[in-house]
Design a protein around this nucleic acid. Sequence first.
RNA 1: GGCCCAUUCGUCUAUCGGUUAGGACGUAAGAUUUUCAUUCUUAAAAGAGGAGUUCGACUCUCCUAUGGGCUACCA
Length: 507
Amino acid sequence: MNRRVRVRFAPSPTGPLHMGGVRTALYNYLFARKHGGDFLLRIEDTDSHRFVPGAEEYILESLKWCGITIDEGVAEGGPHAPYRQSERREIYLQYAMQLIGSGDAYYAFDSAEELDALRAEYEARGEMFAYNFAVRGKLKISLNMSAEEIKRRIDQGETWVIRFKMPENELVEMDDLIRGRVVVNTSTLDDKVLYKSADSLPTYHLANIVDDHLMEISHVIRGEEWLPSLPLHYLLYRAFGWSSTQPEFAHLPLLLKPTGKGKLSKRDGDKMGFPVFPLLWKGADGEVSRGYREDGYFPEAFINMLALLGWNPGVEQEIFSMEELINLFSLEKVGKSGSRFDPEKAKWFNSQYLRMKPDEELAELYMPVLEGHGINTDKAVVTRVVGLIKERATFVSDFWGLSSYMFTAPTEYEAKAKDKFWKGENPARVAELRGILAGVADFSKENTEHVVHEWMVAKEYPMGQVMNSFRLAIVGQSMGPSMFEICEIIGKDETLARLDKALAVLG
RNA sequence: GGCCCAUUCGUCUAUCGGUUAGGACGUAAGAUUUUCAUUCUUAAAAGAGGAGUUCGACUCUCCUAUGGGCUACCA
């Protein structure tokens, strides 16, 4: 069977999209592109209670920022529209009814309170309550009722749910593209709810299978948290008679927190100082969660880092463009165990992408920052400065701290550098250097370097001492690129002014 | 508790029975540099434990341990 590759990313709009979700979307996207297939976005909003306004928009914007393009979805439309499950509600009931008709499902009239009481009762006895074949006999379900009673209850407006009738003691053999064969005995499973009359909405399990079938999904690539419900899904495909076109499954390992136990959660980011969301999120409760985008990460770096968390092409290369990821991607190379996220490596990826960016592009990003500091300079100058400092930066936001002295004179002098270099003959030599530079007409770095070197050699001055005290006077601290480079950029007048100021302030 | 999945340096990982177990992040040392950073070199750093199978096991099987997930009228 060689069918067209069609995959979907099916998030639930219950909050901002977590970076683990972005990775799932990414792997789906890479797989689709690699095989020339389709990538669909389906919104699974079948839980009316957990719906969060703005979450869907957030998901869409996140994927867009990441460069993950959608072929069919809520915004794009497509042959299987609508792609929002709440807009497909009338579809699901008929399928649930089909299962009732075939005997694979039944009505259950137990109230939530009754079930809670039952669970509490079991727990008190130290047992776990499972809604399965063992207890069906004593529950208020259609299997124990006459057709008249069922009809009467429904007609009277009792709320009901439709549950899957999980077979007893049957082995379900499943194949996962990442984990291989998995076998589960159905007796360990329970009768999951498929449809709720209270809000006329299906649960995930029903909606998911029906939609994947209707939308002709060929591969389901999702998080490992779904592995336990895979037998149910297999059985559902079988009950509907869709086994022959059932998609293949791949369950992705989870993302774990950098330290400690458990999977990566929103709290970790706040606590350990890194984003867990692609974009900044402002919750209705006023809570704000930082995002990779707002923290200054380039989407390419974020994607590159995420792609390698749980997948590896087996080559020693670390930096990959989206195109390269698409060409190299394969589910066989996805790891089986959870991956701990390392914020330090995320930063490293960003620094790599930062230095790969053209200086001019970075200058455009830096200009608004400079304007914020009241500096309006020529873009050519900014471009040149960026070229000199970008190898020391991780984010564009590091630029100001690394180059403010290129645009404005230092207001203070670093104490440590002062103690180290502003001593002995050095102040006098700097004063002498001021005189030398005042007489130089051509302030190009080649020329000033030549002149100053001649002078130091002639006077037999120690270069390290002179240059460092010179740097302290101009920069205010012990850092930065070549002094002659700096002088050329700030110009002769500014150079002399700063020397005068340093001589006056430092004594 | 039950069920399922997993287990190579601190972290991400390569290895698909025979390797000095490789790379990257981070860490440390050294070199380069007028300073800082970069860059370069080097170092420390791993097959959870125990049984098998095999001439040979990180690689296959089983057990244990540990980690993770699921166990809702949530996804």
